[in-house]
Simulated assay, not measured.
Amino acid sequence: MSWLRFWKRDDEQTAGQPGGTVTLPADRPLPPHLAAARQRAQDNRAGVAETPDGGARRLAELERRRQAALFEVEQGELASTADNPWEQRIALLTEALATVNDDLERLDAAPPEPFAALHETPITDIVVSSGQPPSVGFTVGDQRFQYDEEVDWAERGHQVAMGELRRLAGDPARLVPTTISAELVESLTVHLTDSLFVFASDLRDRQLDAEPFPDRPTLADLGRPCAVCGGWRDWRGRCQACARRNAERGQLKREADRLLDERAGEVEERHRLVERMPIARRRLADIETQLDALETARA
């Protein structure tokens, strides 16, 4: 029921009474929207009584703007000096950039990786099973290598992904020639371990794709020299030493780009502050003029 209809109903009920007036109970509540409007009016009246007058608010705003303009002028004056924080940061960034460039030059001029040739020992007795799980076996010299695939099973027992091969038999260290220097034994053993894994994975993939096996592979095929860095290449022709150098080179280049961007930002910031200083001075003078006029009017 709307309040208009409510008042009409009360008027009809009191028609014929002396004076035609309606006496409402003292505790009758106001409608929610009227009560909210009354509360807002009371709050506004209380706020007006507590807030400063318009002149005080204007004075506070001008003082805030004056401080901002003064700070901008001071920053511009500081940036105009010969020895300023921006120039100091630019010098530090330039020094760091020179160090990074030196590291890049040293990396490009790095000596060839150590290398020792492997024997042309045939890889024989290749057996690849495509069952579950797939397995790969082959013989190199007196070492029989056996790799089985790690199975990744779903909840209902179905294989959901091709897993990595695990070496179950064979010792790569036994394939390292006894004639090489002692300092190369460990690195060559690590390389052979990785290259044998790559070779076994390639055999498994060829079996699954119904492709022929490689023709008369040898142990030397697992460690041919790299034409770029001189180190060993694996069965697929990939060189870990080159990959390591390329990763380091990429990291250094990203660092150089970051330093260049940061230095350019410092130069741009310093130039902006110096260029805007005359504008900031004029704005500061205008604000101070307004402040003087306002204080004179309030006096």
Rank of each mutant, 00 (worst) to 15 (best):
Q88W: 04
E186Y: 11
S135I: 01
R166Y: 10
R166K: 11
D142V: 04
L196G: 12
V127R: 03
Q143M: 03
M162H: 13
F115S: 07
E113V: 09
E113Q: 09
D142F: 05
D152E: 14
E120I: 00
E113G: 09
P177L: 09
Q143N: 01
G141A: 12
R174K: 11
H191G: 08
A161T: 06
G157D: 04
A117W: 05
S135L: 00
D194I: 08
V151F: 06
S195F: 13
P172T: 15
F115K: 10
P122R: 06
V151C: 04
L92A: 15
A169K: 14
S135D: 00
R156M: 08
L165W: 13
I90H: 05
V160Q: 09
A173E: 07
V136H: 01
G131D: 07
V136C: 02
R174D: 07
E95H: 08
D171W: 09
L93P: 10
L97W: 09
F197K: 12
Q159N: 04
T193P: 15
S195D: 09
A110G: 12
E164F: 11
T193V: 15
T178W: 01
D108E: 08
E105K: 14
V160F: 07
E87T: 04
T189D: 10
H191M: 11
G157Q: 13
R167E: 05
D194H: 15
T99H: 09
L184V: 03
L188Q: 00
L97A: 15
D142K: 05
S181Y: 00
E155F: 07
E186R: 11
F138T: 04
V190M: 07
P122V: 10
A173D: 14
E149K: 02
T124E: 04
R167L: 07
D152L: 06
L168F: 13
R167K: 05
P172R: 07
L196M: 15
S130Y: 02
L118V: 02
P114H: 06
V127T: 03
A117Y: 04
A161N: 02
R89A: 13
P134H: 00
G137I: 02
P111N: 04
A96D: 07
S195P: 06
H158A: 15
P111C: 07
T94C: 03
E120F: 01
P177K: 02
D194E: 11
D171I: 09
I90C: 11
G157E: 03
V198L: 12
A91G: 14
G163M: 05
Q159K: 13
A109D: 15
Q132H: 06
A91Y: 08
R167H: 04
F197D: 12
A91H: 13
E150V: 12
Q143F: 08
L196Q: 12
T193H: 15
L107C: 01
